[in-house]
Amino acid sequence: MPSKSQEDALEALAASRWRVAAVLTVATLVAYFGFILLVAFNKPLMGKQLTPGLSVGILLGAVVIVTAWALTGIYMIWANGKYDRALSQLRR
């Protein structure tokens, strides 16, 4: 039988998972739509070549892809650590 405090702990854990998920989702949105808005509204900047062959647009495109993966990595580290520890304590 789960006690009152256990229910509270699950409640807190659920809230913190949604919080982390929301923050990371917003970060993904900002990265991608930031890229899209720059493409749409600042074409000269995106076309500027930093060194011959490397335009700002190509660099940022690659950065968004790597960032997207890095964000899933950050979530994994948080979930495998803090979240799973709290879960296994709840299961006890």
Binding site: V20, A22, T25, Y32, G61, V64, A68, T72, Y75, M76
Partner: peptide, 16 residues
């Protein structure tokens, strides 16, 4: 390239 980027960004959402 805009498409390359666009097709990937759904995956973090699936993860989170």
């Amino acid at each position: 390239l805009i498409y390359s980027v666009g097709w990937l960004v759904g995956w973090p959402v699936v993860t989170f």
